[in-house]
Design a protein around this nucleic acid. Structure first.
Lengths: 201, 201
DNA sequence: TATTCAACTTAACACTGTTAATTATATCAT
DNA sequence: ATGATATAATTAACAGTGTTAAGTTGAATA
């Protein structure tokens, strides 16, 4: 009974095709400036076909963001190696986080700024990929605390402080590219270094 | 020649009326969900009248954001009192910044996240209100450095690190209200405290 | 009173997300 | 191979969007 499977495969392929087209357009032209008709044109289907695969435009955004979070998670998990020096790992993770945001600025904004505006359900709920990203951060931080490098014992707060710092600098660099920033890498390092030192104190 | 003056006054009044209506709608329903026609209805004028006072919708957003920055600047400047303890002043300023963002979350996002998406001209250019806000921060930081409380001598970087931290936590709290944050006030204090301690180290 | 000029409005254009009704197509049973 | 069935994709339409051009009003000037 290979027919049904083939059909299912084809359906999934088209769904993926729609997703790719949507991501590419969202990233290049901005979510607001992308119409369902534009996406439809790109994949050479009629606009309403998209609605057979996604509930609406916000749902499409949702799926794109989920992919982005998966990418981010993969990028981070590749750094989890040397747990012996947890502070160094945390530093590297911070850098990787910011660099991910700057490498895919539109994706980052889509996921962490624009999506929350449309879907009140954050994408950080239990079991979600978003939660796993924060889980990763929690793990890093908790190892630092366990080895008594950080003074404070509150894992949650510590993680959230770290997240605030990297999220903040990422968005500022994305949103105000013409601001007379300190040299970019220096600023990122300063943010991460300052936060880590602050957590040690 | 009071007639022309009266007419000019009336024009300015209507402009202000449009601005107020726009802000109220933007704040309550989100920039994307507010149409020119909605604004027009609110002030009981035809939609196209707005275009006699503002170039387009983005220009309207621009003006709303400029007002927001002025509000923020005023809020901050009221704290500039006791320069004797610059660290305490900086701490208070940080808190005031975040609290401003949380008090007017839509305004904050409009100004620091949504506007940059539409107007590449940041609103932080020379002579602007936005620049004055960062000038304020620079002043606070520079006093800390002058009194040798902060080790680093780079005023710019230090200020930008501080800004990253408060911007980050503000946006996270706004965008993910359902995330299991540490108690809000505790988190804000932790962010500011950590950053300041980190800058001391 | 006629004219000029600014303020404002109406009508229109090309576009948006989305739904309902309709057509085409590929699979199945006969 | 032919007809029935289910599913995939399309067309047409609705109510709404930002914005422009042309037209109307009404008051200040000559």
């Amino acid at each position: 009974m290979g027919i049904k499977e083939r059909r299912a495969r084809e359906k999934e392929q088209l769904q993926q095709q729609i997703l790719s087209a949507a991501r590419e357009l969202f990233v290049n032209e901005g979510y607001e400036n992308v119409s369902m008709r534009k996406i439809a044109n790109k994949i050479e289907y009629s606009p309403t076909t998209i609605y057979l695969y996604f509930k609406d435009k916000a749902d499409l955004l949702d799926s794109v963001c989920k992919e982005t979070l998966l990418n981010l998670l993969n990028t981070l998990e590749q750094l989890k190696s040397n747990i012996s020096d947890p502070v160094e790992t945390l530093r590297k993770s911070g850098r990787a986080y910011v660099e991910f945001g700057l490498k895919y600025p539109q994706d980052y904004k889509l996921t962490f700024v624009i999506r929350p505006q449309f879907q009140k359900g954050l994408g950080l709920e239990e079991g979600s990929v978003g939660e796993k990203v924060f889980d990763y951060l929690r793990e890093m931080v908790s190892e630092c605390i366990r080895q008594q490098v950080f003074c404070q014992v509150d894992i949650e707060t510590t993680g959230q402080v770290m997240w605030s710092a990297v999220h903040g600098v990422t968005l500022l660099l994305i949103d105000f590219p013409d601001f007379p920033w300190t040299e970019k890498d220096k600023l990122i390092d300063a943010v991460i270094h300052t936060t880590i030192e602050g957590l040690k104190a």
